[in-house]
């Protein structure tokens, strides 16, 4: 075996070590604790005073019978609920995504006000990983079980 070959193999071992170390670092470290894409209502409430005024992403399910679309003011009102049944009322401005409905997941971005209302500048719908054929009389929360589990296991 030539020395070139040997060098190449040493580089292979080095690259694999760097790669394995990098992956282990990301997998084992507490990055999940520090890298938070959104809060759920429970975490928002736990933050207490700190929650007011800060730009926050809040996610949860749209509570049944809470969704109101006010056409003249182009405002959506809804209540976001999580697994602990903690609820946060949300007001979002602008036309919502067509998929928005009760029982589906949402991610809202905005600020939590002293009045106890979350003022959202952006409302996104979070779809689940379940793809279903239409069923007679089925509702969103019957069909999308993993989305609910998402907000139950977290």
């Amino acid at each position: 075996m030539s020395s070139n070959n040997m060098t190449s193999r040493l580089f292979l071992v080095g690259a694999l070590l760097v790669a394995g170390g990098g992956l282990a670092f990301v997998a084992m470290s507490d990055m999940g604790e520090n890298l938070v894409y959104y809060w759920e209502p429970t975490q928002l409430m736990e933050a207490g005073e700190d929650a007011y005024g800060a730009q926050i992403r809040l996610a949860g399910l749209v509570e049944t019978d809470s969704l109101v679309w006010d056409e003249p003011s182009q405002t959506v009102k809804l209540v976001v609920v999580d697994a602990n049944e903690v609820k946060v009322p949300v007001i979002a401005h602008g036309a919502p995504p067509q998929m928005l409905r009760e029982g589906i997941g949402v991610v809202v971005e905005g600020t939590y006000t002293q009045a106890g209302i979350f003022e959202a500048d952006q409302l996104l719908v979070k779809h689940s990983n379940e793809y279903k054929a239409p069923e007679e009389g089925a509702t969103a929360d019957e069909l999308y079980q993993t989305l609910e589990q998402d907000f139950k296991t977290n």
């Binding site: 990055m31 938070v36 991610v107 689940s128 990983n129 793809y131 993993t146 977290n154």
Partner: peptide, 16 residues
């Protein structure tokens, strides 16, 4: 590992 807007992994169980 992290919560995200994107849905989780699809599997035969989650696709009709």
């Amino acid at each position: 590992w992290w919560n995200s807007l994107h849905q989780g992994l699809s599997s035969p169980d989650t696709v009709s």
